[in-house]
Design a protein around this nucleic acid. Structure first.
Lengths: 194, 194
DNA sequence: AAATATATTGAACGATCATTCAATATTATA
DNA sequence: TATAATATTGAATGATCGTTCAATATATTT
């Protein structure tokens, strides 16, 4: 039986890890630093997470769960209204809430680990499959899309969204950024129209 | 005046760095390991690259230059023929040559550094702008696209390509992988048609 | 050939890394 | 309340990190 203290401490450690990784980068965040940040000895961290690999693995689960959360309120909304304009969904996907929810630097640092860790790769894959399934559900509610292959559509939409996020993360100029966002939003709308 | 030896050594070191990063991950590749791999003391590496930050910066330049090289043969081909079917270009972009040219793990590891290093971010941004300009040039040669906004089209195509590469890197199943590639290729063809 | 510049070596630095362990404090169970 | 389980501490481990430096070898210039 896992105690309440154990659960709380684990959560505390992972969140502290995330905060430091966000501030200094994943590769610059050590167990000693996390301990200092949280006011506990490194040995306590290792009591709950026996190796750093396990610790990182939990950080990734934490991030991916958070990311999934941006969708659940929309899904709920959808269930209540029995209809949701897909444009609302698209707007939400390109909104800044997303960035607020999870730091891009940490996200991509963790992502880059998929290439040498199959468990992490699988976890990332599962998230992306879930995201696509969720979008499909939403599209299926739309009368106008009744004859469409919504699974395919969902796939096509996400490839634009993910490509856009990747590309936009390199752009500093605010004006240019907004300009590009409009382009990619329209690209998604075109997919919904065609 | 930079000597020939100096140039060769620098290249040797960067390539050794790349090889080890490909094998063990960027974050697990130290100067000592590079030295061991190349049979030279770490102090020699630091003679040519005074800090590790500078070394990483050169690795990134190396990678991005390599990536750009996948386009130049097509551009040349285009100049000779005075016409190139954009489909050839699209096929090339989704081909495995790309992966052969540069390791995805190293590429994304380096990419994740843009979020805390403005010089690296700028370098990545410049590459992506160049890629788009190159594609625009190619599209401009196509008679059928004469009335099109080729700059916009290039942007839209690349967002699909980059989103696809991101997503496909999570997929292990060969059959599923090929299935998805077809979807994304068609998505690009649709952009060229519309 | 002498003088100068560059290339290369190998040992050493303190800092930090993930991890271990035995001791103590706290909490839960009997 | 006694016993057992868990939580927490702090010191210590060897390994590895990036970096420095003085010495030597090799190449280039005068």
């Amino acid at each position: 039986m896992t105690t309440k203290i154990s659960i709380d401490r684990k959560k505390e450690i992972i969140e502290g890890f995330y905060e430091l990784a966000k501030e200094n980068g994943l590769e610059n965040t050590s167990i000693a630093k996390i301990g200092k940040h949280l006011g506990m000895p490194p040995s306590l961290i290792m009591h709950y997470f026996p190796t750093k690999e396990i610790l990182i693995s939990h950080l990734i689960s934490f991030i991916l769960e958070r990311l999934l959360k941006i969708y659940t309120p929309i899904i709920k909304e959808l269930r209540v209204q029995n209809y949701t304009d897909p444009h609302t969904f698209v707007d939400r996907m390109f909104s800044r809430d997303w960035n607020l929810l999870i730091d891009d630097g940490v996200f991509y640092s963790c992502f880059s680990l998929i290439f040498r860790n199959d468990r992490i790769k699988k976890e990332y894959r599962n998230l992306h499959l879930k995201l696509r399934e969720n979008l499909k559900e939403i599209l299926d509610q739309d009368e106008k899309l009744k004859l469409k292959n919504t699974a395919l559509l969902s796939e096509q939409i996400f490839v634009v969204v993910e490509g856009a996020y990747y590309y936009l993360s390199m752009i500093d100029d605010e004006e240019l950024y907004e300009e590009k966002v409009i382009i990619f939003k329209n690209q998604v709308y075109d997919l919904l129209k065609s």
